[in-house]
Amino acid sequence: MRRVRYHEYGGPEVLRVEQAEVPVPGEGQVLVRAEAIGVNFVDTKYRQGPEAGAIFQRPLPGTLTGDVVGTVEAVGQGVEGLAVGERVAALVAEDAYADYVLAAAQWIVKVDEGVDHGSATMLPMGAPVALRVLRTGGLTPGESVLVHSAAGGIGHFALQIARLLGAGTVVATAGSDAKLEFAREHGADIAVNYTEQNWTGAVRAAVPDGVDVLLDAVGGDVLRRSFEVLAPYGRAVTYGAASGDLISVPVTSVFALKSLAGFNLTAWRTARPEQARAEMDELAGYVAEGKLTAAVHATVPLAEAAEAHRLLDDRAALGRVLLVP
Protein backbone atom coordinates (compact mmCIF):
# COMPACT_ATOMS: atom_id res chain seq x y z
CA MET A 1 0.00 0.00 0.00
CA ARG A 2 0.96 3.68 -0.24
CA ARG A 3 1.53 5.97 2.71
CA VAL A 4 2.82 9.54 3.03
CA ARG A 5 5.53 10.57 5.49
CA TYR A 6 8.28 13.15 5.75
CA HIS A 7 11.90 12.54 6.71
CA GLU A 8 12.98 16.16 7.05
CA TYR A 9 11.24 19.33 8.16
CA GLY A 10 10.27 21.96 5.64
CA GLY A 11 7.65 22.99 3.11
CA PRO A 12 5.03 20.76 1.48
CA GLU A 13 7.66 19.34 -0.86
CA VAL A 14 9.12 17.21 1.97
CA LEU A 15 6.05 14.95 1.91
CA ARG A 16 6.94 11.64 0.27
CA VAL A 17 4.81 8.74 -0.98
CA GLU A 18 6.24 5.43 0.24
CA GLN A 19 5.36 1.78 -0.15
CA ALA A 20 4.54 -0.10 3.05
CA GLU A 21 2.89 -3.30 4.22
CA VAL A 22 -0.81 -3.20 5.02
CA PRO A 23 -0.95 -2.96 8.83
CA VAL A 24 -2.59 -5.62 10.99
CA PRO A 25 -5.07 -4.47 13.65
CA GLY A 26 -4.08 -5.15 17.23
CA GLU A 27 -6.31 -5.43 20.25
CA GLY A 28 -9.04 -2.80 20.18
CA GLN A 29 -8.10 -1.66 16.68
CA VAL A 30 -9.81 -1.68 13.31
CA LEU A 31 -8.25 -1.73 9.83
CA VAL A 32 -9.98 0.73 7.49
CA ARG A 33 -9.62 1.00 3.73
CA ALA A 34 -9.65 4.74 3.09
CA GLU A 35 -12.20 6.46 0.85
CA ALA A 36 -11.28 10.02 1.86
CA ILE A 37 -8.92 11.65 4.34
CA GLY A 38 -9.60 15.01 5.94
CA VAL A 39 -6.37 17.04 6.14
CA ASN A 40 -5.79 18.86 9.43
CA PHE A 41 -4.06 22.24 9.62
CA VAL A 42 -1.95 21.21 12.63
CA ASP A 43 0.01 18.79 10.46
CA THR A 44 1.31 21.65 8.33
CA LYS A 45 2.84 23.00 11.55
CA TYR A 46 4.35 19.67 12.59
CA ARG A 47 5.81 19.34 9.08
CA GLN A 48 7.60 22.69 9.41
CA GLY A 49 9.47 21.49 12.48
CA PRO A 50 11.30 23.84 14.88
CA GLU A 51 10.48 27.00 12.96
CA ALA A 52 6.76 26.48 13.68
CA GLY A 53 7.34 26.95 17.41
CA ALA A 54 7.97 24.81 20.45
CA ILE A 55 4.38 23.63 20.72
CA PHE A 56 4.53 21.97 17.28
CA GLN A 57 7.34 19.46 17.73
CA ARG A 58 7.29 15.87 16.53
CA PRO A 59 10.26 13.58 15.88
CA LEU A 60 11.31 12.34 12.46
CA PRO A 61 10.26 10.43 10.49
CA GLY A 62 7.07 12.45 10.53
CA THR A 63 3.72 10.71 10.35
CA LEU A 64 0.49 12.57 9.67
CA THR A 65 -2.87 12.70 11.41
CA GLY A 66 -6.18 12.79 9.59
CA ASP A 67 -9.91 12.15 9.69
CA VAL A 68 -10.40 9.02 7.62
CA VAL A 69 -13.64 7.79 6.10
CA GLY A 70 -13.68 4.30 4.68
CA THR A 71 -14.70 0.67 4.95
CA VAL A 72 -13.82 -1.76 7.74
CA GLU A 73 -11.46 -4.41 6.34
CA ALA A 74 -10.55 -6.27 9.54
CA VAL A 75 -11.08 -6.01 13.29
CA GLY A 76 -8.67 -6.79 16.09
CA GLN A 77 -9.20 -8.81 19.22
CA GLY A 78 -11.76 -7.45 21.64
CA VAL A 79 -13.56 -5.26 19.10
CA GLU A 80 -17.34 -5.45 19.34
CA GLY A 81 -20.10 -3.72 17.42
CA LEU A 82 -18.10 -3.23 14.22
CA ALA A 83 -18.15 -5.58 11.25
CA VAL A 84 -16.16 -5.97 8.05
CA GLY A 85 -17.78 -3.98 5.25
CA GLU A 86 -19.27 -1.21 7.41
CA ARG A 87 -18.65 2.42 6.44
CA VAL A 88 -16.98 4.32 9.26
CA ALA A 89 -15.03 7.46 10.12
CA ALA A 90 -12.07 7.68 12.50
CA LEU A 91 -9.44 10.11 13.73
CA VAL A 92 -6.11 8.46 12.87
CA ALA A 93 -3.15 9.65 14.91
CA GLU A 94 -0.35 8.12 12.80
CA ASP A 95 -0.02 7.39 9.08
CA ALA A 96 -3.47 8.72 8.24
CA TYR A 97 -2.36 9.55 4.68
CA ALA A 98 -2.48 5.97 3.44
CA ASP A 99 -4.56 3.46 1.50
CA TYR A 100 -5.20 1.50 4.71
CA VAL A 101 -5.14 2.86 8.27
CA LEU A 102 -5.43 1.58 11.83
CA ALA A 103 -7.89 3.26 14.20
CA ALA A 104 -8.99 2.79 17.79
CA ALA A 105 -12.38 1.08 17.73
CA GLN A 106 -13.61 3.02 20.78
CA TRP A 107 -13.79 6.29 18.85
CA ILE A 108 -14.96 5.09 15.45
CA VAL A 109 -18.24 6.47 14.11
CA LYS A 110 -20.52 4.52 11.79
CA VAL A 111 -21.43 6.60 8.74
CA ASP A 112 -24.62 6.35 6.70
CA GLU A 113 -24.02 5.61 3.02
CA GLY A 114 -25.80 8.81 2.00
CA VAL A 115 -23.40 11.09 3.91
CA ASP A 116 -20.87 12.86 1.70
CA HIS A 117 -17.13 12.44 2.30
CA GLY A 118 -16.58 15.97 3.57
CA SER A 119 -19.28 15.83 6.23
CA ALA A 120 -18.23 12.30 7.23
CA THR A 121 -14.64 13.42 7.84
CA MET A 122 -15.89 15.96 10.40
CA LEU A 123 -17.42 13.30 12.64
CA PRO A 124 -14.30 11.87 14.34
CA MET A 125 -12.71 15.16 15.44
CA GLY A 126 -13.90 18.46 13.96
CA ALA A 127 -17.57 18.21 14.86
CA PRO A 128 -16.97 16.88 18.42
CA VAL A 129 -14.53 19.74 19.07
CA ALA A 130 -16.95 22.34 17.71
CA LEU A 131 -19.82 21.04 19.84
CA ARG A 132 -17.81 20.62 23.02
CA VAL A 133 -16.12 24.03 22.94
CA LEU A 134 -19.55 25.62 22.70
CA ARG A 135 -20.78 23.55 25.63
CA THR A 136 -17.58 24.20 27.56
CA GLY A 137 -18.41 27.88 27.10
CA GLY A 138 -21.81 27.20 28.66
CA LEU A 139 -23.77 28.52 25.68
CA THR A 140 -27.48 28.91 26.44
CA PRO A 141 -30.26 29.78 23.97
CA GLY A 142 -30.29 33.43 23.00
CA GLU A 143 -26.66 34.13 23.97
CA SER A 144 -24.24 35.67 21.50
CA VAL A 145 -21.24 33.78 20.13
CA LEU A 146 -18.01 34.84 18.45
CA VAL A 147 -16.12 32.24 16.40
CA HIS A 148 -12.55 33.00 15.32
CA SER A 149 -11.15 31.26 12.21
CA ALA A 150 -14.74 30.78 11.14
CA ALA A 151 -13.93 29.69 7.60
CA GLY A 152 -11.89 26.68 8.72
CA GLY A 153 -13.09 23.12 9.13
CA ILE A 154 -13.96 23.40 12.82
CA GLY A 155 -14.96 27.05 12.56
CA HIS A 156 -17.67 26.63 9.93
CA PHE A 157 -19.11 23.70 11.88
CA ALA A 158 -19.10 25.76 15.09
CA LEU A 159 -21.22 28.39 13.33
CA GLN A 160 -23.79 25.77 12.34
CA ILE A 161 -23.83 24.06 15.73
CA ALA A 162 -24.24 27.39 17.51
CA ARG A 163 -27.42 27.83 15.49
CA LEU A 164 -28.61 24.33 16.39
CA LEU A 165 -28.05 25.12 20.08
CA GLY A 166 -30.21 28.24 19.84
CA ALA A 167 -27.56 30.97 19.87
CA GLY A 168 -28.65 34.56 19.41
CA THR A 169 -26.26 36.78 17.46
CA VAL A 170 -23.45 34.78 15.85
CA VAL A 171 -20.30 36.72 14.97
CA ALA A 172 -17.52 35.28 12.81
CA THR A 173 -13.99 36.49 12.23
CA ALA A 174 -11.72 35.53 9.34
CA GLY A 175 -8.88 37.02 7.34
CA SER A 176 -10.27 37.76 3.86
CA ASP A 177 -13.42 38.95 2.11
CA ALA A 178 -13.97 35.48 0.61
CA LYS A 179 -13.76 33.88 4.05
CA LEU A 180 -16.11 36.43 5.56
CA GLU A 181 -18.73 35.73 2.89
CA PHE A 182 -18.26 31.99 3.43
CA ALA A 183 -18.86 32.47 7.16
CA ARG A 184 -22.11 34.34 6.49
CA GLU A 185 -23.24 31.49 4.25
CA HIS A 186 -22.68 29.04 7.11
CA GLY A 187 -24.57 30.79 9.87
CA ALA A 188 -22.84 34.02 10.86
CA ASP A 189 -24.99 37.13 11.28
CA ILE A 190 -21.94 39.39 11.31
CA ALA A 191 -18.46 38.78 9.86
CA VAL A 192 -15.38 40.80 10.82
CA ASN A 193 -11.84 40.75 9.39
CA TYR A 194 -9.51 40.16 12.34
CA THR A 195 -6.43 41.23 10.38
CA GLU A 196 -7.69 44.82 10.60
CA GLN A 197 -6.38 46.90 13.49
CA ASN A 198 -9.79 47.83 14.87
CA TRP A 199 -11.50 44.48 14.56
CA THR A 200 -12.50 44.59 18.21
CA GLY A 201 -14.28 47.90 17.58
CA ALA A 202 -16.21 46.32 14.72
CA VAL A 203 -17.35 43.48 16.97
CA ARG A 204 -18.34 45.92 19.72
CA ALA A 205 -20.33 47.97 17.24
CA ALA A 206 -22.26 44.85 16.22
CA VAL A 207 -22.73 43.53 19.77
CA PRO A 208 -22.57 46.60 22.05
CA ASP A 209 -22.99 44.65 25.29
CA GLY A 210 -20.21 42.23 24.36
CA VAL A 211 -20.32 38.58 23.35
CA ASP A 212 -21.25 35.85 25.81
CA VAL A 213 -19.18 32.97 24.40
CA LEU A 214 -15.99 33.23 22.37
CA LEU A 215 -14.17 30.38 20.60
CA ASP A 216 -10.51 30.74 19.70
CA ALA A 217 -7.91 28.50 18.06
CA VAL A 218 -5.51 31.27 17.02
CA GLY A 219 -3.94 32.27 20.32
CA GLY A 220 -1.44 35.09 20.66
CA ASP A 221 -2.61 38.65 20.24
CA VAL A 222 -5.98 37.58 18.84
CA LEU A 223 -6.83 35.76 22.06
CA ARG A 224 -5.52 38.57 24.25
CA ARG A 225 -7.56 41.22 22.43
CA SER A 226 -10.63 38.99 22.43
CA PHE A 227 -11.19 39.87 26.07
CA GLU A 228 -11.97 43.42 24.93
CA VAL A 229 -15.17 42.16 23.29
CA LEU A 230 -16.37 39.76 25.99
CA ALA A 231 -19.44 40.77 27.99
CA PRO A 232 -19.39 40.73 31.78
CA TYR A 233 -19.51 37.04 32.72
CA GLY A 234 -18.46 36.26 29.16
CA ARG A 235 -16.62 32.97 28.60
CA ALA A 236 -13.71 32.44 26.21
CA VAL A 237 -12.71 28.91 25.23
CA THR A 238 -9.34 28.28 23.61
CA TYR A 239 -8.68 25.02 21.80
CA GLY A 240 -5.58 25.71 19.70
CA ALA A 241 -2.80 28.15 18.89
CA ALA A 242 -2.42 28.38 15.13
CA SER A 243 -0.27 31.48 15.60
CA GLY A 244 2.25 29.38 17.55
CA ASP A 245 1.98 31.86 20.41
CA LEU A 246 0.47 30.97 23.76
CA ILE A 247 0.57 34.53 25.10
CA SER A 248 -0.92 34.85 28.57
CA VAL A 249 -4.20 36.65 29.20
CA PRO A 250 -4.01 39.56 31.65
CA VAL A 251 -5.20 38.70 35.15
CA THR A 252 -7.24 41.91 35.09
CA SER A 253 -9.62 40.12 32.71
CA VAL A 254 -10.63 37.83 35.56
CA PHE A 255 -11.43 40.80 37.76
CA ALA A 256 -13.61 42.12 34.93
CA LEU A 257 -15.87 39.08 35.44
CA LYS A 258 -14.59 37.31 32.33
CA SER A 259 -13.27 33.76 32.18
CA LEU A 260 -11.04 31.55 30.04
CA ALA A 261 -11.22 27.78 29.66
CA GLY A 262 -9.09 25.44 27.62
CA PHE A 263 -10.24 22.41 25.65
CA ASN A 264 -8.42 19.36 24.31
CA LEU A 265 -10.25 16.46 22.68
CA THR A 266 -7.99 13.75 24.07
CA ALA A 267 -8.29 15.10 27.61
CA TRP A 268 -12.07 15.33 27.22
CA ARG A 269 -12.35 11.74 26.07
CA THR A 270 -10.18 10.57 28.94
CA ALA A 271 -12.13 12.53 31.55
CA ARG A 272 -15.67 11.88 30.27
CA PRO A 273 -15.54 8.93 27.84
CA GLU A 274 -19.24 8.05 27.97
CA GLN A 275 -20.36 11.63 27.38
CA ALA A 276 -17.78 12.10 24.63
CA ARG A 277 -19.03 8.96 22.90
CA ALA A 278 -22.66 10.07 23.22
CA GLU A 279 -21.85 13.43 21.65
CA MET A 280 -20.22 11.74 18.67
CA ASP A 281 -23.40 9.75 18.09
CA GLU A 282 -25.48 12.91 18.54
CA LEU A 283 -23.46 14.67 15.84
CA ALA A 284 -23.67 11.69 13.50
CA GLY A 285 -27.45 12.03 13.75
CA TYR A 286 -27.33 15.73 12.86
CA VAL A 287 -25.18 14.99 9.82
CA ALA A 288 -27.39 12.09 8.68
CA GLU A 289 -30.41 14.39 8.94
CA GLY A 290 -28.69 17.10 6.91
CA LYS A 291 -28.64 19.58 9.80
CA LEU A 292 -24.84 19.84 9.59
CA THR A 293 -22.88 19.81 6.35
CA ALA A 294 -19.22 20.35 5.57
CA ALA A 295 -17.93 22.49 2.75
CA VAL A 296 -15.09 20.91 0.75
CA HIS A 297 -12.62 23.38 -0.69
CA ALA A 298 -10.63 20.83 -2.70
CA THR A 299 -10.23 17.10 -3.24
CA VAL A 300 -6.65 16.06 -3.97
CA PRO A 301 -5.19 12.64 -4.92
CA LEU A 302 -3.20 10.96 -2.15
CA ALA A 303 -0.11 10.97 -4.36
CA GLU A 304 -0.31 14.78 -4.44
CA ALA A 305 -0.52 15.29 -0.67
CA ALA A 306 1.97 18.14 -0.94
CA GLU A 307 -0.62 20.13 -2.89
CA ALA A 308 -3.15 19.67 -0.08
CA HIS A 309 -0.62 21.14 2.37
CA ARG A 310 0.07 24.05 0.01
CA LEU A 311 -3.62 24.91 0.04
CA LEU A 312 -3.61 25.04 3.85
CA ASP A 313 -0.31 26.92 4.00
CA ASP A 314 -1.78 29.60 1.71
CA ARG A 315 -4.61 30.13 4.24
CA ALA A 316 -7.13 30.36 1.39
CA ALA A 317 -9.08 27.15 1.99
CA LEU A 318 -12.79 27.44 2.77
CA GLY A 319 -13.85 24.43 4.82
CA ARG A 320 -12.15 21.07 4.33
CA VAL A 321 -9.35 19.84 2.10
CA LEU A 322 -9.60 16.12 1.35
CA LEU A 323 -7.20 13.48 0.07
CA VAL A 324 -8.55 10.54 -1.91
CA PRO A 325 -6.63 7.30 -2.60
Rank of each mutant, 00 (worst) to 15 (best):
A34M: 04
A34N: 11
E35D: 14
E35Y: 01
A36R: 02
A36L: 10
I37Q: 05
I37L: 06
I37R: 05
G38F: 02
V39N: 06
V39T: 05
N40T: 10
N40E: 12
F41N: 05
V42P: 02
V42F: 02
V42K: 10
K45A: 06
K45H: 14
K45Q: 09
Y46G: 13
Y46M: 06
R47K: 06
R47S: 04
R47F: 09
G49Q: 01
G49N: 03
G49Y: 08
G49H: 01
P50D: 08
P50S: 11
E51P: 00
E51Y: 03
E51Q: 13
G53M: 04
A54H: 06
I55S: 01
I55F: 05
F56L: 09
Q57N: 10
R58C: 04
P59C: 04
P59S: 11
L60R: 06
T63N: 09
L64S: 09
T65R: 12
G66I: 01
D67C: 14
D67H: 01
D67V: 03
V68T: 13
T71S: 05
V72D: 00
E73K: 08
E73Q: 11
A74E: 14
G76F: 11
G76N: 13
Q77H: 12
G78Y: 03
G78V: 00
V79F: 09
V79E: 00
E80K: 11
E80V: 13
G81N: 01
G81P: 02
A83D: 03
G85D: 01
G85H: 05
E86D: 12
E86N: 03
R87G: 07
R87Y: 03
R87V: 05
V88P: 04
A89P: 09
A89Y: 06
A89V: 00
L91S: 14
L91E: 10
V92Y: 02
V92W: 08
V92A: 11
A93G: 07
A93H: 14
A93Q: 15
A93N: 00
A93E: 14
E94Y: 15
E94G: 07
A96V: 12
A96N: 03
A96C: 09
A96M: 08
Y97R: 13
A98G: 11
D99P: 07
V101M: 02
L102V: 00
L102M: 04
A104Q: 15
A104P: 00
A104G: 15
A105Y: 05
A105V: 03
A105H: 06
Q106I: 03
